[in-house]
């Protein structure tokens, strides 16, 4: 049995079934015939959208870290907290590893991921040669995907607000809204971002210039 050249084949990462890659019409999605996992999507302008959403998310992230997140007020005592000060507040014993974990999940890993995506896909969106370490950067962004937990943090914030409501009054700061925006932008970005399409585009862009 003669196989087409390897570049024209795609194997489903979930069940290993071989398929011949096809050029899809715009808006179409190709799924694995056996396990129905999505293999390819074709969206005109997807790269530009992904990069612009990543830049928007980056700006919102900076705002969400630096501005006050919430202000707690109980009988004249009050405590304004930014995400950054929340993390640095844990400096005793047991709380330190927890603070490190929270800092990783809601700031460091999401920011690293955004920078890696902008670095890797930015040139693709502009139609120029990919940067030298573009593949490594996008690989890193893919590895970090499950560990960037900004949207989960947002649900945590809601639960914390309800819990504290009986104890004191809470005012939401600008960072809260920046974070809420960030969550929405991140979800939309991950929805339109198709990893196989990006790998293929990185491949083609590099070969075209080689």
């Amino acid at each position: 049995m003669a196989l087409p050249p390897l570049q024209d084949l795609i194997a489903c990462p979930h069940c290993d079934t071989l398929h011949a890659a096809a050029t899809l019409p715009d808006g179409a999605t190709a799924s694995c015939q056996r396990c129905h996992a999505v293999l390819q999507t074709a969206r005109a302008g997807a790269m530009v959208n992904v990069v612009s959403l990543a830049v928007a998310a980056f700006v919102l992230m900076i705002a969400a870290i630096s501005f006050p997140f919430m202000d707690l007020n109980a009988q004249g005592n009050h405590n304004a907290t930014s995400v950054f000060s929340a993390i640095t507040a844990f400096n005793t014993g047991m709380a330190v590893p927890l603070a490190v974990a929270v800092a990783m999940f809601i700031i460091i890993l999401p920011l690293t991921r955004l920078v890696a995506i902008i670095y890797a896909i930015g040139p693709l969106a502009r139609g120029v040669t990919p940067r030298p370490l573009a593949r490594q950067a996008f690989g890193l962004a893919e590895t970090l995907r499950p560990w960037a937990m900004a949207e989960i943090f947002m649900v945590g914030v809601t639960v914390a607000l309800i819990k504290v409501a009986g104890l004191a009054s809470v005012t939401l700061g600008p960072a809260f809204w920046a974070f809420a925006g960030l969550v929405i932008v991140t979800i939309v970005k991950d929805q339109i971002m198709n990893r196989y399409a990006i790998w293929e585009a990185l491949d083609k862009a590099t070969q075209a210039r080689a």
């Binding site: 005592n77 405590n79 929340a86 927890l98 809601i106 649900v155």
Partner: peptide
């Protein structure tokens, strides 16, 4: 779904950062 279990950890982190009102609470 696995990552969503982290909610409670974040709740604890937010509460401990926010509720530091000296002697009151």
């Amino acid at each position: 779904i696995g990552r969503w279990s982290m909610i409670d950890v974040f709740v604890v982190a937010i509460l401990s950062a926010l509720v530091q009102l000296n002697t009151i609470a």
